[in-house]
């Protein structure tokens, strides 16, 4: 992991190779918590990590695209009895 020290009002730039737009993360306030400002080009979604872990889990849950999910759920319900 790259570790960088920053003060309030300083920022870092994450450059996407090929000039496809940069992401800027700025430290707005420092204290017991820090406030960050994030600027990213269109096409990027910014998540709090703990929320993002649930997004991934939900996507996984939605893509249980088994050829026959009904059979799978039947078998699952048998196993749970």
């Amino acid at each position: 992991m790259l570790i960088i020290t920053r003060k309030a009002d300083e920022s870092i730039i994450i450059e996407l190779e090929g000039g496809k737009g940069n992401i800027e993360i700025k430290v707005l306030e420092v204290g017991s918590q820090i406030r960050l400002g994030i600027e990213a080009p269109a096409g990027y979604k910014v998540w709090r990590n703990e929320i993002y872990q649930n997004v991934l889990a939900n996507r996984q849950a939605a893509s249980a695209a088994l050829p026959n999910l009904f059979d799978a759920v039947s078998k699952l319900s048998e196993k749970l009895k």
Binding site: Q53, N54, A57, N58, Q60, A61, A64, L66, L69, A72, V73, K75, L76, K79
Partner: peptide, 17 residues
């Protein structure tokens, strides 16, 4: 919410949310 993979024995549920 259940995440049901091909191997249904590996089914998980999201207890956090």
């Amino acid at each position: 919410l259940c995440a049901i993979p091909d191997d249904i024995r590996k089914t998980t549920v999201n207890l956090k949310s």
